[in-house]
Computed example of a mutant assay.
Amino acid sequence: MTLVIQHKVRSGTLGQYEGWLRRAVKAARHQPGHLGVNVIRPDGGGDTFTTVVRFAQASQLQAWIDSAERAALIAEVQPLLEEGDHPLVYNDAEFWFTPFNSYQPPRWKQACVTFLVILPLALLVPLLWQPLFKLQPWLGGYVASNVVITASIVLLVVYLFMPAATRLFSGWLRAGGTQ
């Protein structure tokens, strides 16, 4: 699960906001199920920060959102913000291709990035499982081996490679769109 927060920082409060942001990121990292935080700073001269916080389960994300610690942090930062706190919750599959500016890339670009992520895994993952399949013939059967291989690819795509690929190709995914 992914929490995306956008903050438009008031003029003259950038230093205070940066200090607050460091404390907020540290607090989020100590929460159960936390998988990572990315902070996207404003482009040249901008004032909107986007923070992406990932959690393993929806219940863990909701616990962080509802926590007294987060409520205190939000109350502390409110005077530094132009438009308040704007949290949005996405499941990871939705978030892969939903840029922060609400621009949805064309499906052909989404398909290209997905292909580039899945093809190498589809070629490599079965080879990596082969030694275990030879040691455990029941696991190497048609159904069992396909379940293991498919589950491995899906988990690697969702939790590791697709978030990284989306960040890597973010400029290309947004190119040509209204931003």
Rank of each mutant, 00 (worst) to 15 (best):
V77W: 00
K134G: 10
F100D: 12
F100K: 06
D85Y: 08
P105F: 00
D47I: 09
L127M: 13
D47S: 15
F97P: 02
I118F: 14
L121R: 02
L119Q: 11
T51F: 07
R70A: 03
G33F: 07
N38R: 13
Q78L: 14
D92C: 03
Q130Y: 06
D92F: 01
Q78M: 15
F95G: 00
Q31T: 04
L80W: 03
R70H: 04
T114E: 10
A68V: 12
W108C: 05
C112K: 05
T51N: 10
W129C: 06
Q130R: 13
R54N: 03
F115V: 02
P131F: 13
N91L: 05
A68M: 10
F55L: 02
K134S: 13
R107T: 06
A75R: 13
L119D: 08
L116G: 09
P79D: 05
A58W: 15
F95K: 01
H34A: 06
P99R: 06
A75E: 14
Q62N: 14
D66A: 07
L81G: 00
T50I: 08
Y103R: 12
F55C: 01
N101G: 11
L119N: 08
S59N: 09
L121Y: 04
V113Q: 01
L80V: 05
R41F: 12
F49K: 02
R54D: 04
A93K: 06
L123Y: 11
P106Y: 04
P126A: 03
D85N: 10
A71R: 11
V77T: 04
G44H: 10
W96H: 05
A72Q: 15
E82Y: 08
R29L: 07
A122W: 04
R70Q: 06
P126M: 02
F55R: 01
D43Q: 13
L81C: 00
W64P: 02
V117S: 01
P87R: 07
D85H: 09
A58T: 13
V53S: 01
A58Y: 15
A68T: 15
L132S: 13
N101W: 10
S67Y: 06
V52K: 05
V89G: 03
P105Y: 00
H34G: 02
L88G: 06
D43N: 11
E76M: 10
S102W: 13
G36T: 05
E82P: 09
T51A: 13
G33K: 08
E76I: 06
R41P: 03
R41I: 11
D92S: 04
E76P: 01
E76H: 11
A72Y: 09
T50K: 02
V52W: 05
D66I: 02
P79V: 03
T98L: 14
A58M: 15
W108D: 09
F133D: 00
L80K: 00
G44S: 11
E94I: 03
V113A: 00
L119G: 08
H30M: 14
L127D: 10
Q78P: 06
L35C: 03
D47M: 11
A71S: 12
T51V: 15
R107Q: 07
H86K: 14
A72E: 15
A68L: 11
L35A: 02
F133H: 03
P87G: 07
A93W: 06
V77E: 00
P120L: 05
H30R: 15
S102F: 14
E83V: 11
I118A: 15
P87A: 09
P106D: 07
F133L: 04
Q60N: 05
P87Q: 09
